[in-house]
């Protein structure tokens, strides 16, 4: 299967940097240029957030960015329009991340087909539970070469982690601690025992660690326990009125991996 996510993990075993941003924020039509700048600055993977009115797993920063994005007029239809042609400019893997309801209203089958057509490699839908996915939606994802990225947390039992591993095809999103997004963590708060427990399971899928990764120190620490890590809230916070994204993004990425 020729999926850019698998190619990335085959080629790079450590220090993978994945960056999340909310589509439509700070400005409605920034989507393409943010992705382009992220690739140019050295991000390995980009997660494009589909904004939702009721983001129950997110902290204040991503809530605010979603709210603003919707106010700006972002919709899933518009996002696909903005992403059409993205593969002429960008070659790193792209993932769409969002809550289930907008995807459900779009049509899950249509969503998967549209992702395939656009060159999207994976989807993260945190409130689409494993059993619903397996029962009703897995064939749509597989047919369209779209990885459904599933989450595990420190509370997830070993047996459930194995189920998640069996159902996963790209990588596993390892939530660093039990929290909504954007909780500031200190390096010493890391659930080292949880990461070590997961590493001992010899899973077939690689892992990225997300939630609470905000700077070089937390990124480097997470990378000790997985193939890489995901930054969202801290990246969204880095947008500012003074600098265009062409300046703020390289600066931010450099602060993490420079």
């Amino acid at each position: 299967m020729n999926n850019r996510i698998n190619q990335l993990f085959a080629a790079k075993k450590e220090n993978i940097l994945s960056v999340y941003f909310t589509a439509g924020y700070p400005k409605l039509n920034d989507t393409g240029s943010i992705i382009y700048e992220l690739e140019k600055s050295g991000a390995d993977l980009v997660e494009v957030g589909i904004p939702f009115s009721d983001p129950t797993a997110d902290g204040p920063v991503i809530q605010q960015s979603s709210h603003k994005a919707l106010e700006n007029g972002m919709t899933l239809n518009l996002l696909f329009e903005q992403l059409a042609g993205i593969r002429e400019k960008v070659s790193i893997p792209l993932i769409l991340m969002g809550y289930f309801n907008p995807v459900y209203q779009f049509g899950v089958k249509e969503f998967c087909e549209k992702c395939n057509e656009t060159g999207i490699d994976g989807a993260i839908l945190p409130d689409l539970p494993l059993d619903e996915y397996l029962e009703n939606y897995q064939p749509f994802f597989e047919k369209n070469n779209l990885h459904n990225i599933l989450l595990i947390t420190p509370q997830t039992s070993d047996s459930r982690i194995r189920q998640v591993d069996a159902a996963s095809t790209g990588f596993i999103y390892m939530v660093s601690s039990s929290s909504t997004t954007g909780k500031n963590q200190k390096v010493e708060d890391f659930h080292q025992d949880y990461f070590e427990r997961v590493n001992k399971l010899n899973l077939k899928n690689p892992r990225l660690i997300g939630f609470g990764i905000s700077d070089k120190a937390t990124f480097n620490n997470a990378c000790k326990y997985a193939s890489g890590a995901i930054i969202g809230t801290a990246f969204i916070k880095s947008f500012n009125k003074k600098e265009p994204v062409t300046e703020s993004i390289p600066k931010f990425i450099k602060s993490i991996i420079g």
Partner: peptide
Amino acid sequence: GGAWIPEMMYS
């Protein structure tokens, strides 16, 4: 109905 929960609420 169902339980459309993120994994963080699963346990």
